[in-house]
């Protein structure tokens, strides 16, 4: 093939490459931003517990078991939607749910949990939103899977549905549960 013939077919080649890229692009989720904290130790936090204000919830609550740190708030409708499923999970499986109540009205939060049930072992109250910023949270709900050593291994953006749980989260949790400390 001469250089000229190559030159003339260049538009075809470039446009095909762009089409393939766009086709891949259609299956991506531009709104979900990969977290730089994956495989990093969970950022330090130390916050009051929702029910026992004098006690603190901190990184120690994440150690020794696989935990799901769920960032939620009563102001967030998607959190309300996933709540029932989380509750069911917390009863069925031996998973530790830690709640991070993000910039919320604590009174409303307590009322809500009283009415709908509490899936969380501990609930840390993040009044200022500073802890959420340290964790790179940019919307509620977000759920972090933290391994036994306290490292973040996965981040779920948006509500957990039964489908997402079965397909994505459950396999990860199972692998992590078998890890030795």
């Amino acid at each position: 093939m001469s250089i000229r013939a190559f030159l003339y077919s260049l538009p075809l080649i470039i446009s095909m490459a762009i089409f393939i890229l766009l086709w891949r692009g259609l299956n991506l989720h531009p709104n979900e931003i990969a977290s730089p904290l994956i495989n990093q130790p969970a950022p330090f936090f130390q916050l009051p517990d929702l029910y026992r204000r004098k006690e603190i919830v901190n990184n120690r609550n994440l150690l020794g078991h696989v935990s799901l740190l769920n960032v939620w708030s009563t102001a967030c409708s998607a959190c309300m939607e996933e709540h029932d499923f989380l509750l069911m999970l917390s009863k069925q499986q031996s998973i530790v749910f830690i709640g991070l109540d993000y910039k919320d009205d604590t009174h409303a939060a307590k009322l809500f949990l009283k009415e709908h049930g509490n899936p969380y072992q501990n609930i840390a109250v993040d009044e200022s939103g500073q802890t959420a910023i340290n964790w790179g949270v940019y919307g509620t709900p977000e759920t972090f899977i933290v391994d036994k050593r306290g490292f973040i291994r996965y981040k779920q953006i948006g509500a957990i549905t039964p489908e997402i749980w079965e397909k994505t989260l459950k396999p990860i949790v199972q692998v992590l549960a078998d890890e030795k400390i």
């Binding site: 931003i33 990969a34 977290s35 730089p36 904290l37 910023i133 340290n134 964790w135 790179g136 940019y138």
Partner: peptide, 8 residues
Amino acid sequence: LVSRYGHF
């Protein structure tokens, strides 16, 4: 900011 949210 980048250490929390990435280059995005």
